[in-house]
Computed example of a mutant assay.
Amino acid sequence: MTPELGIIEGRFGRPWSWAERTAVMATLGRSGYRFYHYGPKADRHLRRDWREEHPVDQAEAMAAFSAECRRRGVRFGIALTPMGATHPFGSGERADIARRLAALDAIGIDDLAILFDDLRGDMPELAQEQAALVNYCAERTGATRVYFCPTYYSDDPVLDRVFGERPPAYLAQLGRRLDPAIRVYWTGEEVCAREIGVGHLERVAGELGRPVCLWDNYPVNDGSRMSRFLHLRAFTGRPAAIGARLSGHAINPAMQPLLTCIPALTLVRSYREGTAYAYGEAFLDAAREIAGEDLAAMLRDDLPALQDVGLDRLGERREALRARYAGVEHPAAAEVVRWLDGVDLVTDDEVRTQ
């Protein structure tokens, strides 16, 4: 069973242009992706400055993208992070949220996502306050679906080290307090899960009282460490059997829009083919579809250097690779060159301030 597939643009670093966004949505929409949630960390009007409405030109661009999504049969959603609104969640915060939701409705959204990822979580009554805010949003939005990403969106202990120790029974409390129709984003046993299994998903669904919508942190490559690698390989570690345990499966894309589509296409094939899926063959077929025969062969040959060795350890090979891809007139090759030039590296300061 293939769950509803989507894109959650929820990473740090340089946001895509609207043209890049449209190209990705159109490419993946043709292959079966059915929703696109817009929420790059760099859009301050959705995160640190969430109380401020988008400038007119940005709102118009979002409205145009929303219309294009609908034209192609893709649901469009906006992800809002109301930082500082839960403690307290008082009348002023409620008024600010209601006003922002009205502005997002005016843009035209099918889905609303409320995200509390990558924020401090060591606060009293965290699940109670977050659930109250999300339920309030669900009652006032014009969106027909509401998604929620909790502060502790994985079992990974790195979240406790960075954002404070998670409250006891956090997921179970959320499950009891959230409206049953609200979908919950979850990344798996790790923030960037190497494998996602049926048993794990069943356990989390039992705590939340609903199947999760998978927020898959592949092929995302934000952060100062991950941005030094190109994540191009086909999806593995997501057996088709998990599809029946999910309310959806969204990928968090890489910095490189066209190259993102290569692994994204293999996810469709993984679900469709089940145990017959062969990830090497799936990669090459997807690369051919996106980049053409010759460039796909180049990417296959250079895959260990681009994805495993990474920018810092390429040494003299870096210039050779740059010359190799600069000689190819294709936007996917240009993305490789841009990465080799270090243009898309994400800094620790960006992560701290976005």
Rank of each mutant, 00 (worst) to 15 (best):
T2A: 15
G6F: 09
W16V: 02
W16F: 12
A19Q: 14
R21M: 09
V24K: 14
A26F: 01
A26G: 11
G29R: 12
G29L: 05
R30W: 01
A42N: 09
R44Q: 07
R44Y: 10
H45R: 12
R47Y: 13
D49Y: 01
R51V: 08
H54Y: 13
H54C: 02
P55S: 06
A63S: 14
F65G: 07
A67T: 11
R70G: 11
G73F: 11
G73D: 04
I78A: 07
I78F: 10
L80H: 06
M83P: 00
A85H: 03
F89G: 10
F89S: 06
S91M: 07
D96E: 14
D96M: 11
R99Y: 00
R100N: 00
L101P: 03
A103P: 04
I109A: 09
I109L: 03
D110G: 13
A113K: 03
I114V: 15
M123P: 02
E125C: 03
L126Y: 05
A127W: 14
A131K: 07
V134E: 02
V134P: 09
V134F: 11
N135C: 13
C137D: 06
E139S: 06
F148I: 04
F148R: 12
C149I: 10
S154E: 06
D156V: 10
P157C: 04
V158L: 13
L159Y: 08
R161D: 00
E165N: 07
R166H: 11
P168M: 04
A169S: 01
L174W: 01
D179Q: 11
R183M: 07
Y185W: 03
Y185H: 08
E190T: 05
V191A: 13
V191N: 13
R194C: 08
R203T: 14
C213A: 14
D216S: 10
V220E: 09
N221S: 02
N221G: 07
A234M: 00
A234L: 08
T236N: 02
I242T: 02
L246V: 12
G248F: 00
L259R: 01
I262A: 09
P263F: 07
L265F: 01
V268T: 15
S270F: 01
S270V: 00
Y271M: 03
G274R: 14
A276H: 11
Y277W: 00
Y279W: 09
G280H: 05
F283V: 08
L284C: 08
E293R: 13
L303F: 15
P304Y: 00
Q307W: 01
V309A: 07
G310S: 10
D312M: 01
L314F: 02
E316I: 03
R317F: 02
L321M: 15
R324W: 04
Y325T: 00
V328H: 10
E329L: 03
E329F: 07
H330K: 02
V337R: 01
R338D: 09
D341R: 15
T347G: 08
E350K: 06
E350P: 00
Q354P: 04
